[in-house]
Design a binder for these strands. Structure first.
Length: 284
DNA sequence: AGGATAGCCTGCGGGC
DNA sequence: TGCCCGCAGGCTATCC
């Protein structure tokens, strides 16, 4: 569920707590949520998970969030479906211990004093943590497979990407190698705003349609970020707060309800194995 | 090699 | 009340 606006909101809310902090220790409660690049972790998994390092910055590419250490070490945290990455002040869990599905905990300090914890939880474990020896390795081995970031996509770039595939537009938009950051929710919202049928062939969009679609993608994502992300089920930001973007959805989750533009009943069907909601009249 | 498909995993809501 | 089933969905592996 966390798509680009949710991940960007997590990045922004974590930044002041985490950037500049030193990782005093790392607790890995569930090792199989972590993947270590070959050679990384030879000197211990905590070290690969930034133990002893200082967090320099948090970066985002599509739906992926990276913690970059001052010495070059790099981690990617992917929230998958149900993951959360939160900052929690204080030294540790209160009575009752750690909540379930707490997989990784980074203890932070500033100027030698404890400064809270960064906590990764993920009940369904579609997400995870990937460790790289350097930010360059992260980019070349992982982020190079991603398409351009969706929040800054322009019509010409989008058209070039879509022109290479004969798939339906909806599955193409969900392919992170085509465009990075859209998930099922914002893909439906963008197609609705652009007035494009989700079953239209990706390579059938002309320049005008690509321009309209790129603009719609940027608009829904920017509005999502402004609303602090969408809180469906588990999502919370880096401070544990819920977002409001879900209140703005025009088609997602509204199958059978009237179209907000023309009033006709919204259609819901599985397209590319994903539930898709659209207006057959507005998206011709 | 692009594209379709299965599988991963847990929580929750609906139906009986 | 309680159980079972289906669904949710990002991504990887696998097959065609």
């Amino acid at each position: 569920m966390p798509e680009l606006p949710e991940v960007e909101t997590v990045r922004r809310t974590l930044q002041p707590h985490v950037a500049g902090a030193r990782v005093s220790s790392v607790r890995l409660a569930r090792a199989d949520v972590c993947v270590f690049e070959a050679g990384v972790g030879r000197s211990g998994r905590p070290a690969a998970l930034l133990a002893g390092g200082r967090v320099e910055s948090l970066e985002r590419a599509g739906k992926q969030l990276a913690l970059l250490a001052h010495d070059g070490r790099a981690l990617v945290v992917h929230l998958g479906m149900s993951g959360s990455l939160r900052f929690e002040p204080g030294p540790g869990p209160g009575s009752g211990g750690e909540p379930p599905h707490t997989h990784v905990v980074w203890s932070l300090e500033r100027e030698g004093a404890p400064a809270g914890r960064l906590v990764f939880r993920d009940p369904r474990r579609f997400g995870g943590v990937w460790a790289y020896g350097s930010a360059e390795r992260l980019r070349s081995a992982r982020w190079s497979a991603l398409g351009p970031d969706a929040i800054t996509i322009d019509g010409a770039t989008l058209g070039a990407r879509l022109g290479r595939t004969r798939r339906w537009i909806k599955p193409a938009l969900l392919d992170q190698g085509v465009l990075a950051g859209l998930g099922n929710i914002y893909a439906d919202e963008a197609l609705f705003r652009a007035g494009i049928d989700p079953r239209r062939r990706a390579d059938s969009l002309d320049a005008g349609a690509c321009e309209a679609l790129a603009g719609a993608i940027r608009a829904v994502l920017e509005e999502g970020v402004l609303a602090g992300g969408a809180s469906l089920r588990d999502y919370v930001d880096g401070n544990g707060r819920r977002g409001r973007s879900q209140e703005r959805f025009r088609v997602y989750g509204r199958g059978g309800e009237p179209c907000v533009v023309c009033g006709s009943e919204l259609c819901s069907a599985s397209i590319g194995q994903r539930t898709t909601v659209w207006c057959v009249r507005c998206q011709a």
